[in-house]
Computed example of a mutant assay.
Amino acid sequence: MGKIRVSRVGEQLKKEISNIIQNELKDPRIGFLTVTDVEVSGDLQIAKVYVSVLGSQDQKAESLNALRKATGFIRSEVGRRIRLRLTPELIFELDTSLEYSSKIQQVLRDINSERKE
């Protein structure tokens, strides 16, 4: 399949999953989270959904577990909203790239302040 179609399906999945999590899920264990990226396999069978969660490590783990419990519901809603032959299997992963980038920025600021002194 063309890479363009795979990327379009990924973007549409990202949009719909974000909408479902914000408006449809009523689980109090899910904290403030953002869907940062969706990677879809070439055959559109598997979609890895990367989410970023604000809070402590316990809150992140709890939110991720709640999302994994709601995977069936989210997948069925995606299947109703997006017309595909097969609805991809959703795998939720924690995205730590935002934390990593803020850590790198802090290190760079520290180095820059040391140079000025």
Rank of each mutant, 00 (worst) to 15 (best):
M1D: 00
I4K: 03
I4C: 00
S7N: 10
R8F: 08
R8N: 02
V9A: 09
G10S: 08
L13G: 02
K14N: 02
K15C: 10
K15V: 11
K15G: 07
K15M: 12
E16I: 03
I17A: 02
S18H: 03
Q22V: 14
N23L: 15
L25Y: 12
L25H: 10
R29Q: 03
L33Y: 05
V35I: 06
D37H: 02
V38W: 00
G42S: 06
D43P: 00
K48H: 04
K48I: 01
K48A: 08
Y50T: 00
V51A: 06
S52W: 09
V53C: 11
L54W: 09
Q57K: 12
K60V: 00
K60W: 05
E62W: 10
L67D: 06
A70S: 09
I74Q: 05
R75L: 04
S76G: 04
E77A: 04
V78Q: 08
G79N: 01
R80H: 13
R81T: 01
L84N: 05
R85S: 01
L86K: 11
L86H: 11
L94K: 00
D95L: 00
E99H: 13
Y100F: 15
S101Q: 10
S101V: 02
I104L: 14
Q105Y: 14
V107D: 13
L108F: 10
D110A: 13
I111T: 11
K116C: 14
K116N: 15
K116W: 13
